[in-house]
């Protein structure tokens, strides 16, 4: 077997091993790649930063555990920022699995990093509502019809944070972390455009390209994939140096992402190199075979004559 062909027919298990190593080694060595926020991410940060303290922020966790490695760091960075600015955060989800993602924040992050913040006064879990984009429409048309209690069944009127919330427009901004449909696109179409509430948020690297057409008119800002989350974290650390020692998940996870991206680029380049080398050697072989064939036919014709 020629070298280009053997490269092309490399066992896929070797590629799997390389990818495994590209993910695991940086996780163990923990290299830090400092990012700087791009304008599309900075605009989210600036909006949250400029809101007066005590503003109502609606944060929708429209994702499940499968995309959590990309979107959880965004959620944590946004919650840290909102809590540092003393905003009142309402957690919500359009994904049934999103309830678990909210619990990670309310049970693990908030009691540890913001013990002074209390449930019902500084933050609330409004839970999951079925209906996809239609649920957003119902909330905009008549908020209390769909959301009349928190996830534990406590009426909104009994919670200081939501007692005065009668309509969706009572929220200063809507943030959505999205893994697909429903997500940011639906929040823009059914809430942002109709009720005029500023919408922004983050999406997985797969979803983000679909959301670019809405930026900057209908979508204030967008965090795309782990890179977007890492940029937001760097903006947070720049503004609030106290977070320098906090665990910034996206910044940490950029190591495996960087190495994996570089490995995939190298693999694609190698594959193309082998393909073109193999193609040129095949065409030169075919050329030689063609010339030899024509010479043989000429010899036979001479002998016949």
């Amino acid at each position: 077997m020629r070298i280009p062909e053997s490269i092309l027919q490399i066992d896929r298990r070797i590629i799997f091993l390389l990818i495994g190593a590209a993910v695991c080694i940086p996780l163990l060595l923990k290299p830090r790649f400092q990012d700087s926020p791009t304008p599309i991410v900075q605009s989210i940060f600036d909006t949250v930063e400029r809101l007066p303290a005590g503003s109502r922020v609606f944060l929708s966790f429209d994702y499940g555990p499968d995309t959590a490695p990309e979107l959880d760091p965004m959620a944590k960075a946004l919650v840290r920022h909102a809590m540092t600015r003393d905003h009142e955060v309402s957690f919500f989800t359009l994904f049934p699995e999103g309830v678990g993602q909210i619990k990670k924040i309310t049970d693990n992050l908030l009691p540890v990093e913001f013990p002074e913040k209390t449930y019902g006064r500084d933050f609330v879990n409004l839970g999951y509502k079925a209906g996809l984009g239609g649920a957003i429409n119902t909330m905009v048309v008549n908020f209390r019809t769909l959301v009349n209690a928190d996830a534990e069944g406590t009426p909104l009127d009994n919670l200081p944070i939501t007692a005065d919330v009668d309509e969706m427009v009572d929220y200063a901004i809507i943030l959505s972390l999205t893994a697909g449909d429903p997500g940011l696109k639906e929040w823009i179409q059914f809430a942002g455009d109709i009720a005029g509430i500023p919408v922004m948020g983050g999406g997985t690297a797969v979803v983000a390209p679909e959301l670019y057409p809405y930026y900057p008119q209908q979508l204030i800002g967008l965090m795309g994939g782990l890179k977007g989350a890492s940029e937001y974290e760097s903006a947070l650390v720049d503004r609030y140096p106290a977070y320098r020692n906090a665990t910034m998940e996206a910044t940490m996870r950029m190591g495996p992402q960087v190495v994996t991206h570089v490995l995939i680029v190298l693999l694609v380049l190698l594959g193309n190199l082998a393909y073109f080398l193999g193609r040129s050697s095949r065409s030169s072989q075919a050329g030689r075979a063609g010339r030899a064939g024509r010479a043989g036919q000429a010899d036979q014709a001479d002998r016949r004559h």
Binding site: K129, A130, G134, A135, N137, V141, N142, L146
Partner: peptide
């Protein structure tokens, strides 16, 4: 809109 929320 309310009916939709119930039906879903």
């Amino acid at each position: 809109s309310d009916y939709f929320a119930i039906i879903t």
